[in-house]
């Protein structure tokens, strides 16, 4: 079994934290993984993405082939759309509906959302609003991870939940509990 995931968003939105949690869960549960990240210049408000590959077999390439990704997890709708050509036919997009407009020529929102909703398997949710309404504005990325959890399949939601505890352990119990709650909210918001 394998799962090829593209994580994407805008620098500073917490994409790499999602990657760290999934990566930790994979390692703790004996899966092979490769996870290519973007560091450096692009992190300053540019588009960032991470190729995350999980498998029960040996993995060769750090990069996912076009048309081969099983899942796109995105903090931003236009960034989700950018990687759709990497998705396989039955692949799924899980994305925030909230546009991050730090460029002048951001596309028309209605047309953008229409194009995303044309992908057969797509989950779009206002994660920023959900996080804010639950008084956890900084955990929007973990809400998104919760939303994506049932599509990750190769790891169970409970395994990801345990990983959140390990990844945030150094920041104290309150931070761990808040992020686990964010994860659960995301998980429950998807049918």
């Amino acid at each position: 079994m394998k799962k090829d995931i593209i994580l994407t968003g805008v620098g500073g939105q917490g994409i790499l934290t999602i990657a760290t949690i999934i990566g930790d869960a994979a390692a703790a549960n004996g899966l092979s993984l490769k996870q290519a990240e973007v560091h450096g210049m692009s992190q300053r408000g540019g588009d960032v993405q991470s190729n995350l590959r999980l498998s029960t077999e040996e993995i060769h390439s750090d990069l996912i082939k076009q048309g081969a990704a099983d899942l796109i997890i995105s903090m931003e709708p236009m960034e989700a759309l950018r990687y759709v050509p990497y998705l396989n036919k039955g692949g799924c997009v899980v994305t925030s509906s909230h546009p991050f407009k730090n460029i002048q020529n951001y596309p028309n929102e209605e047309e953008l959302m229409h194009e995303i909703n044309n992908v057969p398997n797509v989950e779009v949710l206002p994660i920023d609003d959900i996080a804010k309404n639950n008084s956890m504005p900084k955990s929007a990325n973990i809400v998104l991870l919760g939303m994506a959890a049932k599509y990750i399949e190769i790891l169970t939601p409970e395994q990801l939940r345990q990983s959140i505890a390990r990844v945030f352990a150094s920041k104290g119990t309150a931070v761990v509990e808040m992020n686990q709650k964010a994860f659960d909210i995301g998980l429950q918001s998807v049918k």
Partner: peptide, 11 residues
């Protein structure tokens, strides 16, 4: 995709 623009880094 049609509705995608480059997003360069910024200060």
């Amino acid at each position: 995709p049609q509705n995608v623009m480059p997003r360069p880094p910024a200060l």
